[in-house]
Design a protein around this nucleic acid. Structure first.
Lengths: 248, 248
DNA sequence: CGCAGTCTTGACGGATCTCAATACAGGTGG
DNA sequence: CCACCTGTATTGAGATCCGTCAAGACTGCG
């Protein structure tokens, strides 16, 4: 991943890039102070495993920078990604001692970790964290349900197109650009990770990307750099209602 | 569905069958009083639509009795069930005006509805409802993620076996019987509903049920009445870790 | 009895997976 | 600088699972 900024070091909450979107978004200054006392930063390199399913987990955390994945693996090795963690997303579950999923950094990753016990205590004493966490969890549930439709009913081509739309949207939101400009981004996932996300094999992912390229729906430079010449055309390939709205 | 009890009429919260598991589980007597003032019961027949995706929704609700499904439909008619609503499950999202999914009663159904605006007000003023709703939402998110693994990676046979295990577990919990006894239950879903849940066609569902029957994994009387002679054998067919624990 | 809804079964085709060979890029060491 | 290696991606051939289309069976009901 192209990461021009210097790596984050422990910051004051007031200057935190995810301050207004993370689980702490609604916190009052006094609550923030308490959070500061139980927080610490951890960094991971691309490819590193943050935690294995079944491991004891003494913290919960917010993703500050980078991308991580949440996935489940069956005995025989089949794996399914069940979540994509972007900056401001929350990891872990208050009250749960043991991780339920594998968490893997797909890019270099910085997390703001809170010791679990004190965090749980703060959640009981103050309302704002729990309220925000409820909102975020409801959003994730909606996203999971949208993903169930994709996994259960969409064709391989539609799955790829849907993933590209999601990444394009996320990227646009991050860069604060709007629809009309040309859409260009780098895929943050390997073909294998995309396959795990979409419930496909990596060969099928590769073939469908080639097909979309051949049909002019996308333009590829190298393996990862994507240009979308006509976003509506791509939207039409997702199988979703014509009107999922424009880019954002 | 075989429903021997008389249909529920509006009850006092204190006598409510889902009192200790629903969104109101943690409420103090004073909070319950307030809830009573904003609640009303609604009943639906099997097959009736409770609400269409996109409809305005001025209430949230708990399922008191019966089973409902949450589903999403694509323009061309492909549909995917994204949730199975059992007694004590919560329907709707505080702060959301418009339903995001179709809700359909698969059996006769009774819901305890709360007018949305007053309910939202109560959520802000008192902590217990929000806390309980957060717990329930986190549980649903876990269930959705488990379902993503099923949809993305399991074979048709494994999908059917997994669904049977879920229904058997739910039924055992309801009847309060334990593992060792013979497991017998009625399927609460049509083949088509099962297909929508599992991301299959109804023909494939039918074929796989026949195959499990032929192989002695299940015994069928009529179309809906199922006996599981060897629960561990069925568990082995789900593809999950050998140890998902026994029946409950 | 006939009808509608639900379910089963068969034949066929196609989308996706599996297995395998090859290509490409970046990094390392000679 | 180039050979080599590793991880990632592409492409092909064949197999397989599941979907599609279609016919027919079972059940309950008017």
């Amino acid at each position: 991943m192209v990461l021009t900024e210097p790596p984050l070091t422990q910051t004051d909450c007031a200057e935190c890039p995810i301050r207004h979107r993370a689980v702490c978004a609604r916190c009052e200054p006094t609550e923030l102070e308490q959070l500061e006392s139980m927080k610490y930063y951890r960094s991971f390199e691309a490819g590193q495993t943050v935690i294995w399913s079944g491991d004891r987990m003494d913290f919960v955390a917010s993703v500050v920078e980078g991308i991580a994945t949440l996935s489940q693996t069956m005995e025989d090795g089949r794996t399914q990604m069940v979540g994509l963690l972007l900056p401001s997303d929350f990891v872990g579950r208050p009250g749960r001692e043991v991780a339920a999923y594998d968490v893997i950094a797909t890019t270099s990753l910085t997390m703001c970790c809170f010791r679990r016990k004190p965090f749980e205590g703060l959640m009981i004493k103050t309302p704002h964290i729990g309220q925000r966490l409820l909102e975020m969890t409801l959003d994730e549930l909606d996203a999971a349900r949208e993903w169930m439709l994709l996994l259960g009913r969409k064709t391989a081509r539609e799955k790829i197109a849907s993933l590209l739309v999601i990444i394009a949207r996320r990227d646009a939101a991050l860069k604060q650009v709007n629809t009309t400009t040309r859409i260009v981004f780098d895929l943050p996932l390997t073909r294998e990770a995309m396959a795990d996300y979409l419930g496909l094999t990596l060969e099928t992912v590769s073939r469908q990307i080639s097909a979309l390229k051949r049909d002019g729906v996308i333009v590829l430079e190298g393996k990862r750099h994507v240009t979308i010449p006509d976003f509506d055309r791509l939207l039409g390939e997702t199988g979703d209602d014509a009107d999922g709205g424009p880019l954002i």
